[in-house]
Amino acid sequence: MSAPRQEIFYLHLLRAVAAIAVIAIHVLGPFRQMYGEIPLDAWFSAVAINASARWAVPLFMMISGALLLSSSKPFDAQYYLQRRLGKVVVPFVGWTLIYLAATSLLEGPQAGLTALIALNTDPAWYHLWFFYDFIPLYFVIPLLAPLLKAMSEEQVKLLVVAWLTLTLMHLLKVPTPLSQNLILYSGYLVLGWYLFNHDTRAQWRYWIGLGVAALAINWVGSYLLTAEKGSYNALFMGYKTLNTVLIGAMIFLLAQRYAEAVGPRLRRWVTSLSTYSLGIYLLHPMLLIPVRTAIERHYDAFGHPALAIPLITLVTLLVAWALTALLSRIPLVRKLVP
C-alpha cells in the first residue's frame, strides 16, 4: 500500500537535497584530482564533501522506485511510454544536442562531431551518463511492480539482502555475471519501494548505524588509498557499491522520519526545488563550465575548498533554479525542463 498523501513531502525533501548534492559533486570535481598539488587539508575538504554526497544520484532512483512501483493504476503501455518515459527521453535528447553544440563552440566543430559519433557509448556531457542507465529502468519497472506486489515482506527482504550482497561483491571487485548496471541500479528501485511501503522502525537504528559507518569508511578509506597510490583513488565513490547504498538508505530514512518538522514557509521552497530538480540537474553543468576551468587554472583564487565549494554550489543552485523556472514557462522549451 502506498504511503498516505501527507507523508510524501519527504520525497520532495529528498529530491531537493539530492539536487544540491549533485551540484556540489560537480563543483568539487577539479579539486579532487589535485592530490599533491594543493595543501592536504584543502584536497581532503573536497574529497570529504564528495564522499559524503555520492548518494545523490542513487536517491533519484530510489524515489522513482518508491513512486512508480507503488502505483495502483492499471498499466497502460501507451500512456506509460508517452507520459512517463517521454518525460525523461525528450529532455535527454534535447540537452544532448545542446551540449554537443557547446562542445563544438568550446573545442571546435571536429570535437563536436567526434562527440556525436561516440554517443552510443559516451554521453555528450559528463552528467548525462545518468540517462544511459536510468532510461532502461523504465522498462524494468512495469515488470517489477506486479512481482513485488505478489511477494511477501520476508521474500522482499531476502531480495534486498541478495542485492546488498551483490553491491558488496561489486565493491570488492568479485567477478560475477550478475554485476550488470541494469541489475545493480534496479536494486535501488526495489530498495526505494521497500523503504516507502514498509514499517522500518524496528530496523531503523541498523540502517542509520550502517550509514554512518559507511560515511566513515568513505572518508578514511579514500584518504588512505589515495595516499598509498599517490593520486586520487575513487574506489569508495561508486554508485553501485554497498557503502553508497547504505548511506542512501540512511538519508532516505532520515528524511522519512524528520521531514514533517520542516515549517510551512521552508516547505514551499523545498517543494519548488523538488519540482524543478530534473531541469536543475540538466542545466547546471552549463553554468559550471567557466567555474571548473578557473578552478583548474587558479584554484587558490577561490579560497579554501571547505568554504568555496558550498558557496559556489549555492550560487549555482540559485541561478539554475531561477533559469529552470523561467524556461518551464516558455511553451517551446518547457519540455526540456520538466
Results as ranks from 00 to 15, higher is better:
W321Y: 15
G86N: 12
Y80N: 12
G263W: 08
Y188S: 06
L235P: 00
D76L: 05
T167P: 01
L235K: 06
A214C: 00
R257G: 09
R267W: 05
F60I: 12
W163G: 06
N181H: 10
N243Y: 03
G238K: 15
L283M: 04
A214P: 04
R83P: 00
E228G: 09
Y80K: 11
W207H: 13
L106M: 03
V333N: 02
T114R: 13
L81N: 05
L147K: 13
K73V: 11
L116R: 04
T200L: 14
T241L: 05
L14V: 10
T293W: 05
I63G: 06
A19W: 07
A24L: 13
A255Q: 00
W269K: 04
R201H: 12
H170C: 12
G108T: 02
M61W: 12
L278A: 09
L147N: 08
P305C: 07
F134Q: 07
L326Q: 10
Y138Q: 07
P91C: 00
Q6N: 08
P331D: 00
T114A: 15
L311I: 11
Y10T: 10
G211W: 03
I63D: 05
I183K: 12
I289F: 08
L113T: 06
L323G: 05
Y99K: 04
G230D: 05
H284I: 02
V17R: 00
S71P: 09
A16S: 13
L210K: 01
H304C: 11
G192E: 05
S72E: 14
A56D: 04
H26L: 07
V140F: 13
V190D: 07
Y80I: 06
L282C: 03
R292G: 07
Q203I: 10
S52G: 11
L246N: 05
S64C: 12
A3N: 07
L191K: 02
H26C: 10
M151Y: 14
Q78N: 15
L318M: 12
A216C: 04
F302W: 10
Y185L: 15
L225M: 14
